[in-house]
Design a protein around this nucleic acid. Sequence first.
DNA 1: TCTGGGGTCCTAGGACCC
DNA 2: TCTGGGGTCCTAGGACCC
Length: 412
Amino acid sequence: VTNSRRILLLDCDMFFVQVARLSDPGGAGRASLLIVGGSGEGRGVVTSADYEVRKFGVRSGMPTARALRLCPDATVVGVPRKACVERSRRIRELLRTLVPVVQAASIDEFYLDLTGTDRLFRDESPEETAHRIRERILAETEISVSIGGGPNRLVAKLAVERAKPGGVHIVPAGAEGDFLREFDLARIPGVGPRFLESLERRGLRTVDDALRVEREWLVRWFGEARGTWLHERIRGIDPTPVVPDEERKSISSERTFSTDLTDPREMERHLLQLSLSVGRTLREKGLRGRTISVKVRDMDFNTRQSSRTVAQGVESDRFLFETARDLVAELRRAHPEPVRLLGVGISNLEEGDAPRQLELFGEEGPLESERDRALSRVKDRVRERFGSDLLVPGRALESGDDDDTPSPEGKP
DNA sequence: TCTGGGGTCCTAGGACCC
DNA sequence: TCTGGGGTCCTAGGACCC
């Protein structure tokens, strides 16, 4: 097959567990039965667990309380988020020096396209290349990874599960069809609980089951898009390219409370915190956004979202917060129940130095004042230098001296 | 034993414009 | 006087992934 691609998927072995141990050698580093996740005052879940803990049936996404019932001797530590982001960045940058096309698919997974690199790697086999990359990553970032390979992303993704932990598994071009037949449909990325349920209703559980169904019937049962998609995947076909890292499309922050909120003022306090966190990240990346969204999860786990798009990109904490507060107020008018979770997000992002659309200001003028933007940036610098404790939530939007912009409602 | 937090992508309907 | 179809943007909801 002359024009087949050579794709690798590099996947860090229990990434959060490894990073937790590296960041805390005396604590997490000493626990062989380690769970990384939220204790969450009863509402936390497992983010990742050591293989020894998984033997007890612990899985990521499982409530931590349940995980501890399954494995009572396990140690639970929180997710070292900053250390994980930093370690992930180091891996990505190292990979970029080794391979022409790198796509970070998540914090701990990287697709590599080696197509056309034969000369670069002097006719090294994909196995040799993968082992070499694995050793480099381990030596320079202290992270153990596994690597799967094949003619496309789907096959590489399934292959990496065979490689774990700490190995390499390459499926040769032409063998992908037979390789796929070893799997249940549930293992195909993109087949989630819902799709699986409708597959099972048709009596389809394994790839082999589905291979016996003509495309026409798959389309009739699951729709044109899904049917065609499945018909390809079960044959090991996946045309999606490895695309070098794209820009971020949204930024959000949300929080589940240990007990449901009923006091509107308390909700507002949390909304402010969430808005500040989103705003900080936004400005850190030098971005502005046009669509602000909020998320409210009620006591009964019913989740609602609402968003508003404005004519110009915004970046100030004040605008984010005031919009979020309005949107949440609207949602809560319809359903004034105790609130389990609140979230704030921004999308429709643009570069922060993009020219503002002056002609769109209309009669209302700019959406946020230069003063609000400047104030947000000043706070970023204070936070950077002294930590966030200095900024008291109640005064987080105020500069202290007289302000030429309207105060938020309810404030003097 | 109730279900985190960060994302991406898709769909469908309505508004609006040409 | 009645009527088309395509494109784009926005919103809400949902599936899915790590």
